[in-house]
Design a protein around this nucleic acid. Structure first.
Length: 808
RNA sequence: GCCCGGGUGGCGGAAUUGGUAGACGCAAGGGACUUAAAAUCCCUCGAGAGCAAUCUCGUGCCGGUUCGACUCCGGCCCUGGGCACCA
């Protein structure tokens, strides 16, 4: 054994062994009982691994390795979410084909993952841009089409009028196209949608079964789905037979309606040819607002009054119809009844345009500076006066129902999922059209519909649409001329089911092997908190769809979720544009993978954001060096003749307490930072003991064995190497996780905290389990503590083995 | 704007169920070893007062509950993430 710790040599050596030994390969045919499917969110192959990936994948690998040591058969695969926008951008900027660029990135990043020593079973690697993967996506889409779970409708996109292309939200900067700088326009185009709304109720309900998900994620999903109970109310347009439907959850405030506010893209406006210039101008102005709820929420509320009036179906009052830019076109009916006294947004709008309004709910707050949005007793509401909000709602809905002017309605905020993208680098949607526009599915036998390799990306609009030949086909059913769909799937489509395909990656005959149910749901899923809503909701949705097609039998994809915080540098997200990225390769070259793994897990608990520091990592490196020299020292030493029994007992207790703590941190709390701190503490203690002239070297070996085992998930290379040097030639990851010796944990003396009025005044040593009287007696014997207790003691609060508090 | 987090020494963090605030580590300062440096090891390290024992203050801010609050409740400030075409 060398005296010096040399991570480079050790890591190469251990990694070579793992590869030759096929240490990470998993047989997927084993029984359900002992299976453990551990999955980290697969990356988009953007070029290089960043520290955020390292953090995500270290957490996954630590859990995988630790679970394996408890006797589980662990499956931990890895793959590439390789369709997406950056490949097309890179292609345009650097004139590289997206596929070439993607392949190169994958090769580099895979190499980086290998150097980090992650225990992936690469046999099951998935690349989503490979037709071996996406053909099954197309296959599944055809099933959805067959069951009417997909449909086409017109919907708005951000349109760049110069580049003649659809822009993603992130490509719109300050309302302008990122490349052309042109003011964007909202444009309606036909798009494909998936009926996620059919599953809204189930997606909401099943959140209750996800006991091992962070409650913040559950809340976010619940709010996103946004189930609300309200009513649809019909307002008749005066001097017309047209009506405007309103959705409201506060029908009890209907007497307070000051105006109707409709979205500038409401269909009602398209049906009228008598709109004023002002209105037309306003509609035009709104059409340059980006299609994003964030933007709509932040813009200054503006509107314009129309000449239309509508009749309040309950009060009979006439109110003006306004266009308002804060009304969402695709939530509810795209038209709201505005009650400024009891809604913040309406209040702001009414104040701005001096629209008079009245209060209809009694409230204690006298301020006229804002709206009262709570419930209460009705006023100014005719026959409904002095009713409670909830009763009034029932009565008013009943009234509307009998008049056929409204009804109860359960509404969801969740909208159907638009899956069409007008881009090249995505999975082709497997349908085609006859020249008359009739749509047909591509026959299953003709799958996959592959992307053409020769593509010119420097064209207006969707490159597939401009391809000279690709879209022109003969209809396989009739032989007539036909045109392929040139839209491709949203890349969330691929990431919604990759965790399923991992279990059958190499099956070219079927989407899934028979073994899927033996491995599902995924036992542990780990990924960035930024995916808390969209990706996780879509994956849950796909799982339920797959279940309903009898492809699997569980209802939820991920039993336990760990949503990890982001890695920040200088307080913000690392990005190339800010020039604050950290290349893991540099760290590995300087300190080795083990140091990086230990540091990233030590620096913060997994769900915190992590502030990267170039210097703090030194501490982890020093720790591994100390571990190496401890092993070196005891290997070359022997027990002394005379052993200090008291010291032996202390060290033995420390070892067992450490096992206890690390086991809990690792498997229950998943707070890896404190697990590592505990191991550091133990090593510090042992280093002192190893220098002690009455030490038992055998105990040092027992301690070393323990440390190697409990540290191995974090630092798998150094621990394996020391194991080989100091113990035997077995594989450390196949050893069993240590169990603490309960007898060694028992302490016969406890330190009790003595407080007076809750303030710390001292500590005393007592026998474990001493009762109040005994402790009280000892406190009174203590010279220092006695003086605090001269006054009358009103009360004593005593907690065995912990504190005694005197209230005086 | 709406939804979900977070705020503790110079810094990252610990305190697991309301019971010792600052474990572990970084940085800094001092020392040992060395011709010197690196590496390593030892000591100090929340603020203030005091020769000292010790005392007072201290977990973003204001208020509340409690014998006792980083922890629970109400209000506010700052900050990170998401907002449906970044992934």
């Amino acid at each position: 054994m060398d005296k010096e710790y040399n991570p480079k040599i050790i890591e190469d050596n251990v990694q070579e062994f793992w590869e030759l030994n096929k240490s990470f390969s998993t047989s997927l045919n084993s029984d359900r009982k002992d299976n453990f499917y551990c999955l980290s969110m697969f990356p988009y192959p953007s070029g290089k691994l960043h520290i955020g990936h390292v953090r995500n994948y270290t957490i996954g690998d630590v859990i995988s390795r630790a679970m394996r040591m408890t006797g589980k058969t662990v499956f931990q695969p890895m793959g590439w979410d390789s369709f997406g926008l950056p490949a097309e951008n890179a292609a345009i900027q650097n004139k590289v084909h997206p596929e070439v660029w993607t392949r190169k990135n994958i090769e580099h990043m895979k190499n980086q993952l290998m150097k980090l020593g992650f225990s992936y079973d690469w046999e099951y690697e998935i690349t989503t841009s490979d037709s071996k993967y996406y053909r099954w996506e197309q296959w599944f889409f055809l099933k959805l089409l067959d069951k009417d779970l997909v449909y086409r409708k017109k919907s708005e996109v951000n349109w760049d009028p110069i580049d003649k292309t659809v822009l993603a939200n992130e490509q719109v900067i300050d309302g302008k196209g990122w490349r052309s700088g042109a003011e964007i326009e909202r444009k309606e185009i036909p798009q494909w949608f998936l009926k996620i709304s059919n599953y809204a109720d189930e997606l909401l309900r099943d959140l209750e079964n996800l006991k091992q998900w962070p409650s913040s994620v559950l809340t976010m999903q619940r709010n996103w789905i946004g189930k609300s109970e309200g009513a649809i109310v019909q307002f008749q347009i005066c001097d017309s037979d047209m009506t405007l439907d309103v959705y409201t959850t506060r029908v009890d405030t209907i007497f307070g309606v000051a105006f109707l506010a409709i979205s500038p893209s409401h269909p009602f406006l398209k049906s009228r040819d008598d709109l004023s210039m002002e209105v037309l101008e306003f509609i035009d102005r709104c059409s340059s607002i980006k299609v994003s709820e964030e933007t709509i929420g932040q813009i200054e509320k503006e509107g314009v009054k129309t000449d239309f009036e509508a009749v309040n179906p309950v009060s009979g009052e006439k109110v003006k119809v306004w266009l308002a830019n804060y009304v969402l076109s695709d939530y509810g009916t795209g038209c709201v009844m505005s009650v400024p006294a009891h809604d913040e947004r309406d209040f702001e709008f009414a104040t701005k345009y001096n629209i008079p309004f009245k209060k209809v709910i009694k409230s204690n707050h006298s301020s006229d500076q804002n709206a009262y949005t709570g419930e209460g007793i009705l006023i100014n509401s005719g026959q409904y006066n002095s009713k409670k909000s909830s009763d009034a709602r029932d009565d008013i809905i009943h009234f509307l129902q009998t008049k056929k002017l409204g009804k109860k309605k359960i509404n969801f905020r969740l909208r159907d999922w638009g899956i069409s993208r007008q881009r090249y680098w995505g999975c082709p949607i497997p349908v085609f059209y006859h020249l008359d526009g009739t749509m047909f599915p591509v026959p299953e036998a003709d799958l996959p519909v592959e992307l053409p390799n020769d593509i010119n990306l420097n064209v207006d609009g969707n490159p597939l649409d401009s391809h000279p030949t690709w879209k022109y086909i003969k209809c396989p059913y009739t032989g007539k001329d036909a045109i392929r769909e040139t839209d491709t799937f949203d890349t969330f489509f691929e990431s919604s089911w990759y965790y399923l395909r991992f279990l059958s990656s190499n099956n070219s005959e079927r989407i899934f092997d028979d073994n899927v149910d033996a491995w599902l749901p995924v036992d542990q899923y780990i990924g960035g908190v930024e995916h808390a809503i969209l990706h996780l909701l879509y994956a849950r949705f796909f799982h339920k769809l797959m279940r309903d097609f009898d492809l699997l039998s569980s209802s939820e994809p991920f039993t336990s979720l760990l949503s990890q915080g982001m890695v920040l540098k200088d307080g913000s997200k690392m990005s190339k544009s800010k020039g604050n990225t950290v290349d893991p390769d540099d760290i590995i070259n300087k300190y080795g993978a083990d140091t990086l793994r230990v540091f990233i897990m030590f620096a913060a608990p997994p769900d915190n954001n992590l502030e990267w520091s170039d210097t703090a990592i030194e501490g982890s490196y020093k720790f591994l060096k100390r571990l190496w020299s401890f092993a070196y020292q005891i290997k070359n030493a022997e027990s002394t003749d005379e052993i200090d029994d008291e010291r032996f007992r202390q060290i033995n207790t420390k070892i067992n307490k450490s096992i206890e703590k690390v086991t809990n941190d690792m498997f229950v709390r998943k707070n890896f930072n404190t697990a590592i701190a505990t191991i550091m503490e133990l090593l510090n203690e042992l280093t002192k003991y190893a220098d002690y002239n009455k030490r038992d070297n055998k105990l040092c070996f027992i301690a070393l064995e323990t440390i190697l085992k409990i540290l191995s998930p974090f630092a798998p290379h150094i621990t394996q190497e020391i194991w080989w040097k100091c113990f035997d030639d077995r594989i450390l990851m196949d050893e069993r996780w240590p169990k603490s010796d309960k007898d060694a944990l028992i302490e016969d003396i406890k330190e009790i905290v003595v407080q007076v009025n809750g303030k710390l005044r001292g500590r005393i040593q007592v026998d474990t389990g001493s009762d109040e009287a005994e402790v009280n007696r000892k406190v009174h014997e203590d010279e220092k503590l006695k003086k605090y207790l001269s006054n009358d003691i009103k009360k004593i609060i005593f907690i065995r083995d912990k504190i005694i508090n005197y209230v005086i």
